[in-house]
């Protein structure tokens, strides 16, 4: 459906916005079929993924491991449904495969599985156990710098995930080695499993923490496509230190009854809820990969 060209596929904000909505519909449909998986985080990240995969990333879906590619590490493996939707829509694998989320013998594992065992194009390494992605991203960034290459490395972290000490160990390493080819994107949705983030573990003052750890910091509205685009450009231009984008999002964005509610962290919609969700996320010109309710 899409030309497998380098980015940008879309330059128009309206197209990116429509794609973000389609990604949200895809997430709902994936979860309706799998009847298991995470709704909230993935919906909140749809705008970011639309911008990354359809505008900003330097990627070649037909050659997913091209040595010149930008690297994306999804440290929060549980938001896989948005990643799978974006990868499929961008042509990394057939859109129809979104029907196989979390099914036995499939490539779309509940949490992204290693390339060597499951071979899903676009995935670099396994994730699911939280807190490990940033170290890997720093390692890749260091390797790329050693080779004087210009690929950029993005690592997407959750705010709850920042409870893990390894994140801050990696942040120190990134700062120490001046990995300016690395951008951490923190999904600041104020939600994690048990409660809102500040009730589980005090994170604030979070921006100051990242600054103190030596990062150039950007704070933006995670549902404003223009802001995301501009900030990714700005982050790529940072020299001499790593960058961090504090992406203020709402868990479950786009579906009224899920929005900003931590209880939607890890559950799928049931058939009735899915119907309401899809009625709120209007159909797009890109079309659904399934008509779940036509049986």
């Amino acid at each position: 459906m899409f030309p497998n060209l380098k980015n940008p596929v879309f330059t128009d904000i309206d197209d990116l916005s429509e794609m973000a909505r389609q990604l949200r519909r895809d997430i709902i449909n994936e979860l309706l079929i799998s009847k298991s998986g995470h709704s909230g985080g993935p919906l909140g990240l749809a705008d970011l993924f639309s911008v990354l995969y359809f505008n900003k990333l330097n990627i070649l879906p037909q050659d997913p491991y091209n040595p010149e590619r930008d690297f994306v590490f999804l440290s929060i493996g549980h938001v896989a449904p948005i990643w799978y939707a974006a990868l499929a829509r961008r042509g990394y694998f057939p859109i129809d495969e979104l029907k196989t989320l979390r099914k036995i013998n499939g490539r779309l594992q509940g949490h992204p599985a290693p390339l060597k065992t499951h071979g899903l194009p676009g995935v670099e390494i396994a994730s699911g156990a939280l807190g490990q992605g940033l170290s890997i991203a720093v390692g890749t960034a260091l390797g790329l710098k050693l080779d004087k290459k210009s690929n950029h490395v993005f690592c997407i972290c959750g705010d709850g995930e920042l409870n893990e000490g390894q994140i801050w160990e990696a942040a120190m390493t990134a700062h120490h080695h001046k990995t300016d080819n690395l951008t951490v994107i923190v999904d600041r949705n104020h939600c994690q499993i048990d409660n809102r983030t500040e009730n589980v573990m005090m994170l604030e003052p979070l921006v100051e923490k990242w600054k103190a750890f030596g990062f150039e910091l950007f704070e933006i509205d995670g549902h404003n496509l223009k802001e995301i685009m501009d900030t990714i450009d700005a982050a790529k231009k940072v020299k001499g230190k790593p960058s961090c984008i504090m992406l203020y999002t709402k868990m479950g964005q786009g579906v009224s009854f899920m929005q900003d509610n931590y209880k939607w962290h890890g559950v799928p919609p049931n058939d009735e809820q899915g119907k309401i969700a899809l009625s709120e996320l209007l159909p797009t010109k890109f079309g659904d990969f399934v008509d779940y309710y036509k049986k």
Binding site: S34, S36, G37, G77, R102, Q109, G110, H111, A113, A126, S127, G128, A129
Partner: peptide, 8 residues
């Protein structure tokens, strides 16, 4: 834990 997959 089934559908969560190998990491879990």
């Amino acid at each position: 834990v089934g559908p969560d997959g190998a990491t879990h």
